[in-house]
Computed example of a mutant assay.
Amino acid sequence: MAVAMAACSLGLHLCADNSLRALEKTIWGAPVLKVSSISDTTKPCYILHKTRLSSSRITIIPRATAVTDVEGGNQDETDTVPTPVVIIDQDSDTDATVVEITFGDRLGALLDTMNALKNLGLNVVKANVYLDSSGKHNKFAITKADTGRKVDDSELLEAVRMTILNNMIQYHPESSAQLALGAAFGLVPPKEQVDVDIATHLTISDDGPDRSLLYVETADRPGLLLDLVQIITDINIAVESGEFDTEGLLAKAKFHVSYKGKAIIKPLQEVLANSLRYYLRRPSTEESSF
């Protein structure tokens, strides 16, 4: 499993050109884990997004240009649209962050996504594609260009996630109705909204004497990864590593967590679970939602 992660950085800044790139960051210490749309064809259009956290900055997410010929070829509109899946894995490789993207057989070469990740100050160090019954899996490992090490802060991890989802909606507009981001940034919003109360599931279990495993499943929303990490660290629980999956309208996260180097005791598990449920079940129309 992965080693303990470094400092958390909150307050995401993304710059709008044809891809996303990270601007200045404000780093502050905290243990951490392991977007497009209808566009105006005459001028760029931007959406301002302010996260729930008081320490967060303003995020600028570019509306992508509507694309008729999606990467990998035109798709028959009568086809069944597969569920987009984006997995960010901090556990399986000790030296790099592993990203896996699946959208049936529609993703193509992902060259624009690779270039967008480079604009975030990241290197793609290895990549492979494999097929199974669920489709074509594009799997690659990324590291920070300045250090050669895995991505170690939640701000940049969320930037990676938003970059991939933004590019997916841009080059595969048919994915818009399958993603939570499609409600605000996509060509076609999801046909049905996820009932947060029904979709939210939390479990906490021991994962050896020195850490616990926190599993969270809930309705996806922009900034969710940042907020989950902040809520956990606000009660002095360390997030050592984990995996964050975006599966259509849902987000699924597994965090290895500890308190003072030990597994979390039952009373603190209840505090953590209640804090997360309170946040996740708040109405999405609040300021924190987009």
Rank of each mutant, 00 (worst) to 15 (best):
S133N: 12
L156G: 00
T246N: 11
F255W: 03
Y259K: 15
S258Y: 01
G208D: 06
F244Y: 15
E100L: 07
L250R: 14
I60D: 00
G248A: 08
V151C: 08
A16F: 00
T200L: 02
D76K: 10
A183H: 07
P190T: 08
K118V: 06
G29E: 11
H49N: 09
S36A: 14
T51M: 03
K191N: 08
L213F: 03
S54G: 06
T68M: 08
E174T: 06
L131P: 00
G186R: 03
L111G: 09
A219H: 04
K139T: 13
P189H: 06
I101Q: 07
E243K: 15
K118D: 04
N138G: 01
E270T: 13
S289V: 11
T83I: 14
V98W: 00
F290Q: 11
D146N: 14
F290P: 01
A219G: 07
T80Q: 09
E174L: 06
L10K: 11
L214N: 04
I204N: 05
V124C: 13
L23Y: 02
Y171Q: 11
L107G: 05
K25F: 02
G182S: 08
M114H: 12
G248V: 13
L272Y: 04
K139C: 14
Q178W: 00
K254Q: 14
K118Y: 03
V216W: 07
A127D: 07
V216D: 10
A145K: 14
E240Q: 14
R57C: 04
S19Y: 02
A199L: 05
N123S: 12
I265K: 15
K118E: 13
S54P: 00
A127K: 11
E192Y: 05
I142R: 02
L131E: 13
D220Y: 02
T83E: 12
P209N: 08
A6N: 13
G208S: 08
A109R: 10
A184I: 14
L12T: 09
G73E: 06
T203V: 05
D146W: 00
A66K: 08
L202D: 05
T163D: 02
G248Q: 09
G186K: 02
V196Q: 08
D40T: 04
G104I: 00
M162N: 07
C8V: 07
G29V: 12
R221T: 10
E71C: 05
G208E: 07
R63I: 15
D17G: 07
T78K: 11
L250N: 11
V239R: 03
E270K: 14
S133A: 15
K260Y: 03
G29I: 09
A263F: 03
D207Q: 10
L156R: 14
I237P: 06
D153R: 10
T200R: 02
P283S: 13
G135M: 05
T94K: 09
A177D: 09
R221L: 08
A273G: 06
V229E: 15
V32T: 15
Q75A: 12
D197K: 13
L120D: 02
C15F: 06
D112R: 11
E77W: 05
L225C: 09
K266E: 15
L10V: 13
L181D: 13
L48D: 10
S284Y: 07
A116H: 03
S275E: 11
A7N: 11
L157G: 06
K25T: 15
T68R: 10
S176C: 15
